[in-house]
Design a protein around this nucleic acid. Sequence first.
DNA 1: CTTATTTGTCAATTAATTTGACAAAGAAAA
DNA 2: TTTTCTTTGTCAAATTAATTGACAAATAAG
Lengths: 157, 157
Amino acid sequence: MDSAQNNIYVDRFKDILKHEHFLLGIGEISKATGVSQRQLRYWEEKGYIKSEESKDDSKKCDHRHRKYSHFTFLKVSMIQSFINDGYTLNAAVQKTDAHSLLSKAVKQFLKERILDVTVVQNGYELDLGSIDGVPGKHVYAVIQKNANTKLILKDFV
Amino acid sequence: MDSAQNNIYVDRFKDILKHEHFLLGIGEISKATGVSQRQLRYWEEKGYIKSEESKDDSKKCDHRHRKYSHFTFLKVSMIQSFINDGYTLNAAVQKTDAHSLLSKAVKQFLKERILDVTVVQNGYELDLGSIDGVPGKHVYAVIQKNANTKLILKDFV
DNA sequence: CTTATTTGTCAATTAATTTGACAAAGAAAA
DNA sequence: TTTTCTTTGTCAAATTAATTGACAAATAAG
């Protein structure tokens, strides 16, 4: 992956990361979050969460299985986290909505800042690009199995 | 989110990121990747990909709907990307398997390096922690809507 | 205590997936 | 080219999973 093999894989990976968009069924959301299907349907009825069907009028055919975005999955996880700590449903939703864009920001970071990838011993090194005030260098994240991920500065040619 | 509100949300978010584990049905994988359900079943039959059912003997009950991990979703996306460019199925799988751990490395990075989150104008600032050779400072990712995500160095108290 | 919100459960219906089989298209080999 | 092997499409019958609607129970709020 250091040379020619590099772009053949990395460019595809970046492209997949950038465009990935999958939906989850109610059963999968329920299992992964611990929120029952009955709760999910009720929360949707009350407008706290949205399924693709409730967003798009063209998909509003009866008896269609609900599909949820990964964004909604995280939202449900967050609401449930607050509920587990004693918040009411309404309060949990309010707390969750206050920073609903954080998950999108993290995705934006990944899409914009993974510039390149190199293979290293037991892992990978991500090129995160330049950092303000340090010209001629890039920040790299060194990610290795059984080691703490660390950041380093290296000359960028 | 700058003060007391902070941890109430950020710690939950980090925890959710760290432990999120959802599965996808064959229909969702197929729609999101453009690979037909017939192909996915065949690829599994040939051992190129695995569903949860094919991993875990205890789940090997007949007629159960297949579930795939996000890791497998990315793998299928990658295989399809190679196939779209003219690779045979076998070659596409080989190319894909060569760096199958990259997606896990990226997840590891997120889990280990998002130390804190602060609200800024139109976005968020992620504390990515210290960087080798620059004591007393942390790297921050400033993520704003309608702006390129940038990295900055700031004193860390 | 009374009312409103939220969730569990059941039954009947509809949707989505499973398996198995056969055919057809595509790639590799003779 | 011809033959063979790999890969995918399609169909039907069976099975699993989700849908809606309703009622009851549990929980929170007034």
